[in-house]
Design a protein around this nucleic acid. Structure first.
Length: 213
DNA sequence: CGACCGATCCTC
DNA sequence: AGGATCGGTCGT
């Protein structure tokens, strides 16, 4: 597929109603949309090519499962279209879009981007490796946060604002593939739900080769 | 208050 | 295949 380009107008946003659709619908429709982070170091961002839907409280793969409502996950209960961000393995931040019916603790994990802006800054943040290929810069939920400089400081931000924001975009439905979500084997039957969405055969999608076709 | 562990990534 | 690395979560 041909390389993505920047959206024509970085100031466009989704209406709140977009985020209040069922969480798996939002996850699917976010493919082809754009995520940007504006910092003193400049604008970094790209086109979303991989997402996962997390549907608490019944979904045992979600942080919000089993009726859990703690300080860490409180953003999942908050307004739709805001950021839910968490630290995993003591090292990597992961970014989610709060989405789904109002009041339910649900979110969409953004797993990979095709980088479009601020690639030099991304390489700096990723600690050297100036020779890293473009398609690897935002390949995986931890890497894309590191590349864009997304941290806990961005927790709860409104994605309709101008610091950490989403710009509408679409993906040819014929290119959309689904699979079970990655690394939630502990979730029993919930681990089998086809709630991972990705652009088929896109170089920036994460996971083993068979999970990218 | 201590023990356990993860919606990951990199290196070996 | 295994280690890094630490805050959240839960049991005692």
């Amino acid at each position: 597929m041909k390389p993505a380009t920047l959206p024509p107008d970085l100031s466009t946003r989704y209406p709140r109603s977009f985020y209040e659709q069922p969480t798996d619908d939002v996850a699917r429709q976010l493919l082809g949309a754009y995520l940007f982070h504006r910092t003193p170091e400049g604008l970094c961002g790209g086109m979303i090519v991989e997402t996962e839907a997390y549907q608490g409280p019944e979904d045992l793969g979600a942080h919000s499962s089993r009726g859990r409502n703690t300080d860490r996950i409180r953003a999942m209960f908050g307004p739709r279209g805001h950021a839910y961000i968490y630290l995993i393995y003591g090292m990597y931040w992961c970014f989610n879009v709060v989405a789904g019916p109002e009041g339910l603790p649900r979110a969409v994990l953004i797993r990979a981007l095709e980088p479009l802006a601020g690639l030099d800054q991304m390489r700096l943040r990723l600690n050297g490796k100036p020779e890293a290929k473009d398609h690897t810069l935002c390949q995986g939920p931890g890497k894309l946060c590191k590349a864009l400089g997304i941290t806990g400081a961005d927790y709860g931000l409104d994605l309709d604002a101008d610091k950490l924001f989403l710009v509408p975009g679409t993906c040819d439905p014929a290119l959309v593939a689904t699979s079970p979500r990655i690394n939630i084997d502990y979730a029993g039957e919930w681990a089998l739900k086809p709630w991972r969405f990705y652009v088929r055969n896109h170089a920036s999608v994460s996971g083993p080769p068979k999970m990218r076709r």
